[in-house]
Amino acid sequence: MKEELEKRIVKGPDGIEFEVEPLRDYYCEAAPTVMPQAYSKIIEGFFNWARAESLWILGFGTGCGAIEMRPLMTPRFDAYRYGVQWRPTPRQSNLFIISGYLSVKTLKRAIRSYEQMQNPKYVIGLGSCTINGGMYWDSYNTIKCLDDYLPVDLYIAGCMPRPEALLAGFEELKKLIRAGKAEGANQYAENFEWYKANQKKVILDWDMPDYNW
């Protein structure tokens, strides 16, 4: 366990000493919960339409695929015309693109970022590395099956898929969301134990709370 996460006595600016237990005091212990549908089908349909039209991507690049985002967000492919844009923090985004292989070290950060995103949220696995390990299938340090660790709504195959493939992927994702089939966040909440068990199997130095909300 890292030193900064251990229980300790802290002296406040007013001279009063008090105990801090970072894992309990700085994080919420409650596990994620399933988000219920809106009270009427029409309203839920309307929500889904609105969600589909504003995909905000977390600016988190991993593997080779992050490089495909630059042409995608600049005038050549201009994803902004589809209502897609990039955000600097997990709190403002609802789409997480895992853009290639995930080493165990990055997986840890990806989980933390994913859990900090607001519901409803979606995950796209980009490139063959996220699907079955790709060319890193025998690597000692990358995971091979992304959907064991995070709920993936859509995979885009290729090594590396070009920006056009991503644009097509966004359109597919919009269809899924509008049809009410992109329920990744709820899936994560329902199978929370299973996801955590898988994550802990590969992340050997688990030094964070179970749910990083």
Partner: peptide, 26 residues
């Protein structure tokens, strides 16, 4: 982070075996 095996760039480290044992292959 938290590596417990022999250092992975040593040539007597069997990468494929480790990957098969540690990660689920699709």
């Amino acid at each position: 982070e938290g590596w417990a095996d022999i250092p992975p760039y040593r040539r007597d480290f069997d990468t494929l075996k480790y990957a098969d044992e540690t990660y689920k292959q699709r």
